[in-house]
């Protein structure tokens, strides 16, 4: 027994070093699974406050760009106004006697929530974006996030009272389902290879898909995160994958990750019900 204590005392520094390293590795490995831990929420609030102060200065410097983006969005929205379309007289008039949309939101599936980007990074291999809107302002986990030009940005992974952390598409663990707009048979998964910001890869696209440079890639709508048809990017280069019968498509993202200021989080009102159903089905199969 005495020898054990002597040993520990003698090599205390080394043992302490090993313990700290093990703790760090534990944090690295388990972060994704335990990111709801109270400590992480508390840390988010603290770093969020600091980021907010910095963003006040940064936002002022980027006002011009932010304005341009908002003007562009306004233009797009104005062009979708009903008054801009005129139906010819020969068309059939459709009369619905009940309103498909009600103010209580019973039929509503998707709701857009504006949020301000408080902090953003593109340089590391796992980039996160922090939004200045949190659980107290109805933002929830697993919501999809798009920028002002309808370009997909990422998915909310963590929510504290006043801030939310978004896993950017520029993150090694980011997986988003996508389709080629011209050929909906060609679906795939959007990942990031960690090399260049604003350039993504679409993997597992079968070779029979018709794809050309400049084609649009949109969200597939088969998950509960994004509705169908939000733009992800345009095809930049098509490469055959050596080991399988698939393409890897290099994509330039629609969202410009360098200067994100205003984004929208998309809430899915049906998510909870769908998730519940899936859970139920899973537990039935497992038992």
């Amino acid at each position: 027994m005495r020898n054990i204590f002597l040993f520990i005392r003698r090599y205390f520094n080394f043992i302490f070093f090993l313990l700290l390293q093990v703790f760090c590795i534990y944090l690295i490995v388990h972060y994704n699974r335990y990111h709801n831990a109270i400590a992480s929420v508390y840390v988010n609030e603290v770093t969020g406050r600091v980021n907010e102060q910095y963003n006040k200065v940064d936002y002022y410097l980027q006002l011009k760009k932010a304005n341009q983006q908002l003007v562009k969005e306004n233009e797009r929205l104005r062009n979708t106004a009903k008054a801009d379309f005129e139906t010819p007289d020969t068309s059939v008039k459709v009369v619905t006697d009940s309103i498909p949309y009600d103010t209580l939101g019973n039929h509503r599936k998707w709701a857009y929530q504006a949020a301000k980007v408080v902090s953003n990074s593109v340089t590391s291999q796992s980039n996160f974006i922090v939004l200045g809107r949190g659980a107290a302002q109805q933002l929830k986990k697993d919501e999809g996030v798009i920028d002002t030009n309808n370009g997909v940005v990422g998915i909310v992974t963590d929510v504290s009272d006043n801030f939310a952390v978004v896993m950017s598409m520029l993150h090694k663990d980011s997986r988003i389902n996508a389709l080629l707009k011209n050929d909906p048979q060609g679906g795939g998964t959007i990942v990031w290879d960690g090399k260049e910001p604003n350039y993504l890869s679409m993997i597992n696209v079968r070779k029979s898909a018709k794809v050309a440079k400049g084609d649009t890639v949109v969200t597939s709508g088969i998950t509960t995160t994004f509705p169908y048809g939000l733009m992800i990017g345009t095809v930049e280069e098509v490469l055959p994958e050596k080991s399988s019968n698939n393409y890897i498509i290099k994509i330039k993202s629609t969202a410009n990750f360098y200067n994100l200021q205003h984004v929208y989080a998309i809430d899915n009102y049906q998510r909870e019900e769908i998730n519940k159903l899936v859970e139920k089905a899973k537990s039935k199969i497992n038992n």
């Binding site: 520094n13 080394f14 070093f17 700290l20 390293q21 760090c24 590795i25 534990y26 944090l27 690295i28 490995v29 972060y31 992480s40 840390v43 988010n44 603290v46 770093t47 600091v50 980021n51 902090s119 990074s121 590391s124 796992s126 996160f128 922090v130 952390v165």
Partner: peptide, 20 residues
């Protein structure tokens, strides 16, 4: 630094190594 970058462990591990 890890808290700011939202992926805990990486820099902490490297810093502990050089401090040792």
């Amino acid at each position: 630094l890890d808290s700011f970058r939202h992926n805990p462990g990486f820099h902490a591990s490297a810093c502990v190594l050089i401090a040792y």
